[in-house]
Structure formats: C-alpha cells, structure tokens
Write a protein that binds this DNA or RNA. Structure first.
Lengths: 204, 204
DNA sequence: GCCGTTCCGTCGCTTAGGCAACAAAAGAGC
DNA sequence: GCTCTTTTGTTGCCTAAGCGACGGAACGGC
C-alpha cells in the first residue's frame, strides 16, 4: 500500500462513471458539445439524472475529468512506468504535450463548442502536467533533488513553460516539428534555469 | 397498457441482469457449463455474488431464463408481429421448433454439460411454445375460437405434440427436412384433432 | 477415515442509485 | 416587454447492490 494506496472504489461508482463517459463520447460523435444536455448524457448512459450530479458538477466537469484522464493515460503510455527525470525524458514530455495540443486543435469541433471547452482542456493539461512533474521531481535521488520547498516552484514553472510553449507552437505556423520544438524548449529550460534546479550536471 | 402492461422495471435490475447474461455467455465461450461457477459469473459481470442470487436461484435458473428469452425472441422474429393462427403459420411454428432443437443438438457442448442443460433447454422451449400458442388461440375471433375452458387443453396438447415430434426428429436420422417434417406434423394435427379445435374450416 | 479447499446459499448492515417533485434559470416564440 | 417550454440543480424517500461473514455441502488428497 505504498504508492497506489487508492481506497478501493465501489464497483457501482466505477461502473456509472464509465457509463457516463461512454455516453458522453457517443453523443460528442453525433452532435456538438453545446447541443448536449445533462439529460441526454444521463439518458444515454441509462443512469438517472440525479446520479449524474452525484458524480459531476455539470457537463464541463465531466469533460474536464475526461481530459485529465486521457492526458495522464497518454503520459503513462509514452513515458514508460516510473521513468526518471532525465533530459531525454523531459524532451519527450514536452513533445507529447505539443502533439496533444496540436491534435486537440486540429480535431475541430464546431467553433462555438471550441470556445467552450478549449480553455477547459488547456488548464486540464497544464495541471496534469504539473502533477506529473511534481511526482517526477520527488522521485529524484535526494542528493540531486532541489530543496523540497522549491520543488513546487520548479514544477510550476516548468509545467507552465512547457505548456505555454506548446500552446503557442500549436496555434502558430508550426514551422518546427513537435520534436524540434521540444528540443529547443528543453535547451532553454536547462540553460535558463539550471541553478533553480541545482542539478544541471545530473540532468545533461 | 393493454398487452404489454409490464410494470416498468428498475434500470438497475435490467442492467445487472444484462451484465450477468453477457458474462455467462462469455464464459460459455471459453469453458464448459459445469466448469462455470456462480462466483465466476458474478466476478466477470462485475457484480457481487449476493446480487446474483437476488436475480437467479442458481446458474441453472440463469441458463433457463436465457433459453426462454432467446427462443421467444426467435419466435417473434420468424412469426411477424401479431401473426394469426393459420395453417401456414402453424407449420412455420413447427418448423422453427424443429430447427431450434436441431441447432441446439448440433451445437455440441461437452457431453457432460449436455446432460446438464439439455432437459432444461427442452422444457424451456416446450413451455414457451405453450405460452405462445395460448396467446395465439386467445387472439382468434370469438366465433371460431374453442371454448375458453378448452383453449388451455388445446394449447397444451399442441405444444407437446409439436415439441415431441420436433425432438424425435432432431434426435433421429432427420431423413426429412425440417420443412417437410413440419408439414407432416401439421397434417396430423389438423386431421387428427380438428374437432377439438372446432375450427377445421377456418384453419385450412 | 480426516483434513484443507472451494463453492454454495443466506444474512444484516451500509451505501449508491432511481424516482418524483420542486424552484429557479435559460431559451424560444411572438 | 411577455409568456410557454426546456433544462438545471437540488431534495427526501425508497430500493437495489455491495460487502463481509457465516455454516454447510462437495470435492480432492493422503
């Protein structure tokens, strides 16, 4: 019960959450985000509307939850189990963020809807990225780890930097590949804030 | 609320029943009937074992329920909605029974298992057949319908006759086609018990 | 024979989910 | 502006499902 001490969730909870997510995806396939009501979702999921509210505050919260889940799953997939905080991995991380943002941007959805959940999706990514980075930093060997007080700051700065750069890249002309963009960003991060990390040598 | 006045069932009930049936089918695909335990079914269905018993007495009851459901669905499919009690339809009914019994017989399953649920499946078919016939007779125009007291008897006799003949045919050499067998049986029924029906003319 | 294991039914208690009704907000039509 | 309709959150009560535990039946070793 060290790392994954998750209190076993009631199977019913897991199931209805899953049903709601499935229903939402199905509906997204046939109409726009705006045109989907909580009633629709509940009905499609064969779940009572009141039950929906027991799980999510509203359809935005559901969307948010889905985004986070997908993104963390993507990270877990691309950055193999328990990977370490190396320069190569950091670059890969930045690249994944870029690709994800690009995909989101290209994957259309009616412009009206886009305005609705674009910010939602973006903060989801940024925050999950932050969580991921924090965990990464905490797993560094004590000797090379920044003082625990500043771990939070470093993680915050890096997550925003990666996210922000990725966002600008995805919105711009994308002259560089995601790979190149990631490499360039990591260079800035490493040369620009090595002393904040105090692990310049270790990372390289 | 005339014909299908079914008291609306709780969605949860419908759902778990469905889950149990699905799980059971899946398990039947990978191992024999005997080798499947209630625990397995419940686990696969992500349903608590106690919940299983709230729905079915045991795995035999589950099997029974499934058989009935499938057979009635088959009947509904082959004998178009609200079909009338004519000679042609009666023949078709007999034919469907034959085919179903034949399929069940051929569709293997370990011989050990077969002994377990063959009788189960058979009584299921016979009883559902009886139900179907009763409904059919009741829908006859009052003038040509046998006295309501004897409807039950007629339905019982016919269902057993059709079932018994079909069973013998499916177990035997099957020299006739299902179609031919059905025709022959209906001839016997119509010539042999027309006075019981009292509608010899109407049926022909 | 006895023993360990597995599965069976069943029980009491707790919790998630269904339902109906509600007032309030948001749209649509005129 | 004004209605009429739909959707939204929220509530209280009831039921289905989860959980753990229990004694007992069935099976296999040995």
């Amino acid at each position: 019960m060290a790392t994954t001490a998750t209190t076993k969730t009631d199977p019913r909870v897991k199931r209805t959450r899953e049903l709601l997510v499935q229903a939402f995806f199905a509906l997204l396939g046939e109409r726009g985000f705006r045109a989907i009501t909580v009633q629709d979702i509940a009905e499609r999921a064969t779940v009572n509307r009141a039950t929906f509210y027991a799980h999510f505050e509203d359809k935005f919260a559901l969307m948010d939850s889905i985004m986070r889940e997908r993104f963390t799953a993507l990270l877990a997939q691309r950055l193999p189990e328990g990977s370490a905080f190396t320069r190569a991995n950091l670059q890969l991380l930045a690249r994944v963020v870029c690709e994800q943002l690009a995909e989101m941007r290209d994957h259309e959805c009616r412009p009206i809807d886009h305005a609705q959940f674009e910010p939602l999706a973006e903060t989801a990514i940024q925050e999950e990225l932050h969580t991921f980075l924090t965990a990464w930093l905490r797993r560094l060997p004590a000797a090379t780890r920044p003082p625990s007080a500043s771990v939070a700051t470093v993680a915050m700065a890096m997550s925003w930097a990666i996210f922000g750069a990725g966002l600008r890249w995805s919105r711009g002309g994308r002259e560089l590949t995601a790979e190149a963009q990631a490499r360039q960003l990591v260079a800035v991060l490493m040369e620009g804030m090595p002393q904040a990390l105090g692990v310049g040598g270790q990372i390289g």
